[in-house]
C-alpha cells in the first residue's frame, strides 16, 4: 500500500479509507463543507426571484438552476461524509456560525438583472476556482467537482444569455444590467480570497494538492476572461485602473477593498444574518418531519423483524 506522500507525489487520488494526517482530514472537511454550505445558502439570493421571473421560460431556467444548487449541496455533503462527519452536524455548524460559506452570498439581489450577473460573474468566478479542484487530491471531492463544474458552466452561459437579451431590450433594462454589474464586480473578485501575501494556508494546501493555483493567479485569470465578455455585452466594469498591459500580456486592475471582505466573512455583510436565519428556520421547521420519518422507519423495521 502506498503512503499518503507517495500518492501525492504520483499525483494520484486519496480515497476514503486511506490513512491521512489529521490535519489533511480536517482541512478537507472544512473545505468541502464550506463549499456545500455555499451551494445551499447560494440558493437564497436567486431563489427570491423564482416566483417573480418575468417570463415563463426564464422562470423554468432559474428554477432548474436553483434546483441544481440543491443537488450540488447534496453531492458535496455526501463527499464530506466519506471523511467521517455527518450532514446534520455540518448543518448545525453552519447555522451556529462555526463553519463559513462564500462571502458573496451576503450581498442582496435588487433586480432581475442580478440573476444574470450572478450567473455570469459569480458562477464564472466559481468555475475559475473550481475547475482546478477537479484534480484535487481527495478523490470523492474531485469527482463531485467534475459534475458540478459542467453544470456551473451551463448556468454561467444562461446568465450571460439573459444579460445579452436585457442589453438588447429597453433603456431601463440596460440600466439595471449596468447597476448590477457595478454592485457585483468587486465582491466577485473577492471570491478568490485574500491576496497571496495574506493567505497563510495556501502553501500547505498546494503541497497537499488540495489547491492547485494561488488566489491571485485565479483572480487574474478571471479578470482576463471577463473583460472581453463585458465589452461584447456593452457594460463597463467599475474599475478605473482596469487596462490591458501589453508588457505582461494580462490586464492590470485595482485592489479590492480587503477590509470589506474581512467584515463580510466575519458576519458583517449586508445579508449575513438574514441568510443564516432563513437556513436555521428551514432546518428547525423541518425537525418534526425528520423525526416522523425516523419514527415511521423504526416502526416498519420492528414490524418486519418482530
Amino acid at each position: 500500500m502506498s503512503s499518503f506522500e507517495d500518492v501525492l507525489a504520483a499525483d494520484r487520488r486519496i480515497e476514503p479509507r486511506d490513512a491521512v494526517p489529521d490535519a489533511y482530514r480536517s482541512t478537507m472537511v472544512r473545505q468541502i463543507a464550506q463549499h456545500a454550505h455555499s451551494e445551499i445558502i447560494g440558493m437564497q439570493p436567486e431563489g427570491y426571484w423564482i416566483t417573480r421571473a418575468p417570463s415563463l421560460r426564464r422562470k423554468a431556467i432559474l428554477l432548474a438552476k436553483v434546483q441544481d444548487e440543491a443537488g450540488h449541496g447534496l453531492y458535496l455533503y455526501s463527499a464530506a461524509e466519506t471523511l467521517g462527519v455527518d450532514r446534520d452536524d455540518l448543518t448545525e455548524r453552519l447555522i451556529d456560525g462555526r463553519q463559513k460559506y462564500s462571502s458573496i452570498f451576503n450581498y442582496p439581489t435588487l433586480s432581475y438583472a442580478d440573476v444574470g450577473v450572478i450567473g455570469w460573474l459569480v458562477d464564472g468566478a466559481a468555475i475559475c476556482n473550481q475547475v482546478p479542484l477537479c484534480r484535487s487530491s481527495y478523490g470523492p471531492y474531485a469527482r463531485a467537482m467534475i459534475r458540478i463544474c459542467k453544470e456551473e458552466s451551463f448556468h454561467q452561459r444562461q446568465g450571460y444569455e439573459l444579460l445579452l437579451t436585457m442589453m438588447g431590450g429597453t433603456a431601463a433594462q440596460r440600466a439595471q444590467v449596468q447597476d448590477a454589474v457595478d454592485r457585483w464586480w468587486w465582491p466577485s473578485l473577492m471570491m478568490f480570497g485574500p491576496p497571496d501575501a495574506d493567505s497563510p494556508n495556501t502553501a500547505r494546501s498546494m503541497a497537499w494538492r488540495i489547491k492547485r493555483h494561488t488566489n491571485d493567479e485565479l483572480r487574474q485569470r478571471f479578470v482576463d476572461m471577463t473583460v472581453p465578455q463585458a465589452e461584447r455585452l456593452g457594460v463597463t466594469l467599475p474599475d478605473p485602473e482596469l487596462r490591458w498591459n501589453p508588457g505582461r500580456g494580462r490586464h492590470d486592475f485595482g485592489t479590492p477593498d480587503w477590509d470589506e471582505l474581512k467584515r463580510v466573512i466575519s458576519g458583517g455583510g449586508p445579508c449575513n444574518a438574514e441568510r443564516i436565519e432563513r437556513r436555521r428556520r428551514a432546518h428547525e421547521d423541518g425537525a418534526w418531519v425528520r423525526e416522523a420519518a425516523l419514527a415511521h422507519a423504526a416502526r416498519r423495521q420492528e414490524g418486519e423483524t418482530g
Binding site: 416566483t51 432548474a64 434546483q67 423541518g286
Partner: peptide, 22 residues
C-alpha cells in the same frame, strides 16, 4: 411549490419539490 424553495425540511425534498414545480 416555488414558494417552498429554501424552506424544505431536507435537501432531498428541496430537490423533489423543485422538480414537481418544474
Amino acid at each position: 411549490l416555488q414558494e417552498w424553495c429554501t424552506r424544505a425540511p431536507e435537501l432531498e425534498d428541496e430537490v423533489a419539490i423543485a422538480n414537481v414545480a418544474l
